[in-house]
Simulated scan of single mutants.
Amino acid sequence: MTADGRSRLAAALLAVACAVPEPAPAPPVTGPSGHVQSNLPEATGPIDHAPEDTSPPAPPPASEPPPPPPVAIVDRPITYDEARIARTIAYRQAHQDPAAAGIEIEPRMIILHHTGGGSADATWRYFDRPTIESGRKTIAAAGDLNVSSQFLVDRDGTIFRLMPETSMARHCVGLNHVAIGVENVGDLEDHLLTDAQVAADAALVRHLKARFPAITHLIGHHEYLAMEGHPYFVERDPKYRTRKADPGPEFMAKVRAQVADLGLEGPPVR
């Protein structure tokens, strides 16, 4: 075939290709109500613009309450030698448990007191003596172990630790075996307890509760008789009771207001 013939054949084939009609577009699809529906496939790709999230932010995870601030405690131990230990055990056997063989206690409550005087040094010297003075007839008749407490709070709020918290002190009838005693220097007349002592007692109570979670009660010495009948109260001598006024309702109310969040119980309501 000549070149001229090949050109004419190519032109003819091109004309036939151009004559093939394009397919007609699909008719629109109408729904039951007659509205035109799209016949395009549903989009399966990502949405370009997600709807804005207007829900409130999630709360932060719960956290443990902060630990109580450290309390400044000055160690000023009273004499607690073998002779005093023996007297303490003898007291426990007479008043709490005939089988008692040690001085250790598990603190379950805190009892606040006042000393009846205006000097921390004089109180320390008094507690340092191992035996009770004979002039205190009711107390001396119940045993020769001298009175004491685990803590002494001076009028400026200084806290002295006189003996370990888990060693028994003789400071409250029926409750010595479960109670930590806190003496405050002062009285109800000449040496009224101070705001510094309120703050110090509250801080000490908070500290002791953190150290000894089993503590459930906070009372004043004047409230102790209301504990009679409670499982904590143990006194084998039914005649051995004393009447106390320290540290008084006003002082206790102030301290309790500062530690209300601890949920400590007071004496049972009678």
Rank of each mutant, 00 (worst) to 15 (best):
P69N: 04
P70R: 14
A196R: 11
Q197L: 12
R76G: 02
I159W: 00
P77M: 02
L208H: 08
L193K: 04
G157E: 03
L175R: 02
D190S: 14
T138K: 14
V182L: 03
R136I: 13
A200C: 11
I180L: 07
A179W: 04
V147G: 03
P77S: 02
R108F: 05
E133G: 15
I103K: 01
R206H: 07
G118Q: 02
F160E: 02
S119I: 07
F160M: 05
L152V: 10
I105D: 08
Q150D: 04
S167Y: 12
T115Y: 06
M109I: 11
D81F: 03
N146F: 01
I73C: 01
Y91P: 05
N146M: 05
I105Q: 06
P130G: 07
T88I: 00
I110M: 05
E133L: 15
A203Y: 02
A72N: 10
L152F: 03
W124D: 06
A90F: 00
G116A: 08
A86V: 02
L204V: 13
L112T: 11
T138I: 15
S148R: 00
Q96G: 08
R129I: 14
A90Y: 01
G186V: 10
S148L: 01
S167R: 12
A169P: 04
H113A: 08
A86K: 06
P70Q: 12
I180G: 04
V205I: 14
I111G: 02
E189H: 12
K209E: 06
M168H: 00
T138F: 09
P98N: 00
V147L: 14
A203V: 06
S167N: 09
R136G: 05
T115F: 06
I139L: 13
S119G: 06
A83H: 13
A202I: 13
A179R: 07
S148I: 02
K137E: 13
T158E: 03
A202V: 09
A169F: 00
I180S: 07
D81R: 00
T88K: 00
D195P: 12
A94G: 05
P130S: 09
D75K: 07
A179C: 09
N184D: 04
H114E: 15
A122V: 10
D201I: 08
W124H: 15
V153M: 06
R155F: 04
D195Q: 15
I159D: 01
F151L: 02
I73V: 14
Y91D: 08
A100Q: 00
P68D: 01
A120H: 05
R87W: 04
M168W: 00
D187T: 01
D121M: 09
M109N: 03
F127A: 10
E104A: 15
A202H: 11
A169T: 07
P69C: 05
E189T: 14
Y91N: 09
S148M: 01
T166N: 12
S149M: 06
E183Y: 14
G116P: 08
Y91C: 07
A203Q: 13
P107I: 10
T123H: 12
R108Q: 15
D97L: 06
P69A: 15
R92L: 11
I111V: 15
T194V: 07
S134G: 15
Y126W: 13
P98D: 03
G135Y: 10
R129N: 15
N184K: 05
V74L: 11
T166M: 11
M163N: 02
M163K: 09
A86G: 07
T115D: 10
G117R: 13
R92C: 07
G174T: 04
G135C: 09
